[in-house]
């Protein structure tokens, strides 16, 4: 078993979680609240977590609900799930 793993950030199918570096303090509460375990903590302290398994996201939004700063993290549902609505 290797100690190194490789993350290919160029071939993402979806990008479910977006962090804003200006607000995220790297507290990793989202990492600890995610039941699917899609994140890993950033190896650099106080930096935003890494979404290592984006396609496994269930889009429940618990990472957002647990975040102490509402501007630091954003959930992006898959584009194909954009719903249509119109003004009455």
């Amino acid at each position: 078993m290797e100690k190194k793993i490789y993350v290919d950030q160029g071939s993402r199918i979806v990008n479910p979680i977006h962090f804003d570096q200006n607000f995220c303090t790297g507290c990793n509460r989202c990492v600890e609240a995610c039941q699917v375990d899609v994140f890993i903590p950033n190896p650099e302290r106080k930096k935003t977590p890494i979404v290592l398994y984006p396609t496994e996201c269930w889009y429940c939004g618990c990472c957002v609900m647990e975040c102490p700063n509402p501007n630091a993290i954003r959930l992006n549902p898959p584009l194909m799930n954009q719903i249509y609505w119109k003004r009455k």
Partner: peptide, 25 residues
């Protein structure tokens, strides 16, 4: 409801959905 607070309630609101004015398909 489960997995609706953030992806639906919050995100739809941010995208401009208004429950007083809009029809949802």
């Amino acid at each position: 409801e489960g997995k609706s607070r953030i992806p639906i309630f919050q995100r739809y609101k941010e995208a401009g959905f208004n429950p007083e004015k809009d029809l949802l398909q």
